[in-house]
Each structure stands twice: as C-alpha cells, then as structure tokens.
Amino acid sequence: MIDLSKNENTCNILDVKDIISKIDFNRYSFDKNYKLLDELASFYYLNNNNFVLGNGSSNVIYMSLLALYKKANANIKLIAPLPTFELTIEYARNIGYSIDTFYEEFEIGISKINLDSNKTNVIYIANPNNPTGLTLNKEKLEYFNSICKDNTYMLFDEAYFEFANDYEGLELAKNPNILHIRTFSKMYSLAGIRIGYGISHSDFINIIKPYFSIDAINSIALNCAIYALKQKDFANTTRNIINENKKYLEEVFKELDIFYYKSQANFILHKIKDINYANYMKEQGIIVGRNIDNFPLLNRISIGNINELHEFTKALRLAKAKNLV
C-alpha cells in the first residue's frame, strides 16, 4: 500500500542512523532541551528565549491555544479560513473557544475577518495553506501584522514554508502577538519522531511556556532535530526533487483534464467527480487525502517519490476511466 495522504517527505530522507546509534536511551533528555533552543537561535539569528519546543507542530498549536484561552479567562474566539488544517479548529472547540470560520474562493479574504473588541481574537492562518497549497501575498501579510495587537493574536502555521519558492513571510520574533509555528516533520522527513517549535517575541513565548511539558521532547527527536539544522544543503536538494515530481504530476493532471490548484507545498489539491474516489484508489493500493470538511469533491495528494507517483498515476488513469475524477 502506498500512502500519499499525509504530506510526508518520501523524496529525500534524512539519514539519522548514526545519530540514533549514539543516544543513551537509559538517560532522560529534558535537561538537554537548551541545546536545540541554542541551535535554533543560531540558525535564525535570534535568542533562545524566542523559541518554544513541542511534540510536533500540532502540540505547539495546542499549547498556544490553551495558553491564550487561560489568559483571556475563556472570553476568546478562533478565526480561521476554510479549508484549513482542521485539527486546529477541533483543538479550539474542545478547549472552549467560540469558532468563526470564513471562506472566499480559496483566497484568504481579509474582508471576512470579524474582530470582536469584547473578546480575545486568535487568528489561525497556515502559509502555505493546508490543503490548498496557496500562499499569502505581501499586502495580506502586512494587513495581518497590523491588526495583531492588543487583544488580537495570530497563530501563523508555517509547516510547509520550506517547500515554497521565494517564500514571503513576516519578520520573525518582531510582533509580540504573532507566533510562527514550524516543524521538522515535513521538509526534514522526521514526521515519525514528532518535533516542532514556535518562534515569537519573548513576551508571547512567556505566555506559552507554562504549558510546555519538559519531557515532551524525547532523546531521538532532540538529537535528530539538532542534526537536521546543521544539514545546510538538505532543504534545497529536497525542494528541487519535489518541484520536479510536482511538475510531473501537474503534467498528468493536465493530460487527464483534472483541475488542480497550483501549490507552493509538497502536495496538490485537485478536483474529483465522485466521493467514492478515495475508496476506489485504496482498492488500487493508493491511500489519497482525507475527506475535506465542506469540500467533498476535492482531494489532496502528497508529492511522493517518483516511483510512488508512477503507481499513483496508473491508479488515477483507472479512476478517470470510471469518471471518478
């Protein structure tokens, strides 16, 4: 079975066998977390108090939502576009947030954002967005930066930023109301060991820190993340491979007349004609993207390695013949 449903990096896998072989598994590692914080500070030319670690980027999202909820005494709402990374909305709803979602033709329609002066507002934006793969332009980035003050915060999910060509982002750790959330799971192919991090002004980091569990980061994750940051050419090499594979997949979609969205990430969102598409593809040995809330006739496919994409293409042609796509 070929799994192309989770945006994992199967194109260029970081070799961490030597790192793992040197780990003392009988020792706790939480008193070594500072080593990764120092490495991140050096990598980004910031201070170690501009970072918080997490058991994957989703853990950083959860900690941040919980911290802001407590700070606001539960008088808080989450504002998020659709479609998006749905787990964030699920976390917020379960914590107790009121939820305000909006949609505007797959672009982030800033006119739809409704700030409540009587509540703490938390805006969640993924850039590139998951599952569309679209990125924000400079004008919209500047708008978000301007409104994130006082009782308005933003969780800026940049899990896929390394895949974007000419990525446009905000200046790191400048706005004390914006948290940049990043991960080693995607570009660095370390999804299975679960490690992510947040970057912000120390004021925001201090809001989150009480909700960080010091033993959330295990020895393997800690040491592999430090090693990843030292591999200077890995991201560029991986991006080039994925861009080539993405180009191949785009040509297939064009040939089969399947509409797709131009993506700046390691996945492509495309249209389907039948909700049975995913089940049919699984019967052919390919696991494709999950159901997307409110968008049943869209599906997301990860940019896997070229052998995986060849097998996907075979199954896609069969699905096309059955008018499923």
Rank of each mutant, 00 (worst) to 15 (best):
L141F: 13
L141K: 00
Y143V: 09
Y143E: 01
F144K: 02
F144Q: 04
N145G: 03
N145P: 05
S146P: 05
S146V: 07
I147A: 09
I147M: 10
C148L: 07
C148K: 00
K149E: 07
K149R: 14
D150M: 11
D150L: 09
D150T: 08
N151P: 05
T152W: 05
M154T: 03
L155S: 02
F156V: 07
F156M: 11
D157C: 10
D157K: 06
E158W: 00
A159F: 13
Y160K: 04
F161G: 00
F161S: 12
F161M: 09
E162A: 11
E162N: 13
E162L: 15
F163Y: 15
A164C: 03
A164H: 00
A164K: 11
A164G: 09
N165R: 07
D166L: 00
D166P: 03
D166M: 04
Y167M: 06
Y167K: 10
Y167S: 04
Y167D: 08
E168T: 10
G169E: 11
G169T: 14
G169W: 15
L170G: 02
E171Y: 08
E171V: 01
L172Y: 13
A173V: 01
A173P: 01
K174E: 05
K174Q: 13
K174D: 03
P176W: 00
N177I: 07
N177T: 04
N177G: 01
L179K: 04
L179F: 08
L179E: 05
R182L: 07
T183L: 08
F184I: 00
F184H: 03
F184D: 00
F184Y: 10
S185W: 06
S185M: 12
K186H: 15
Y188M: 09
Y188W: 13
L190Y: 11
L190C: 08
A191Y: 15
A191D: 12
A191W: 13
I193G: 04
I193D: 08
I193Y: 00
R194S: 14
I195V: 14
I195A: 08
I195G: 03
G196F: 08
G196L: 06
G196D: 02
Y197A: 05
Y197W: 03
G198H: 06
G198A: 04
G198N: 05
I199L: 10
I199A: 09
I199Q: 14
S200F: 02
S202R: 09
D203I: 12
F204T: 00
F204Q: 02
I205L: 05
I205V: 14
I207P: 01
I207Q: 07
I207M: 11
I208D: 08
P210T: 11
P210Q: 04
Y211F: 15
F212H: 09
I214Y: 09
I214P: 12
D215K: 15
D215T: 00
D215W: 09
A216I: 02
I217E: 06
I217K: 10
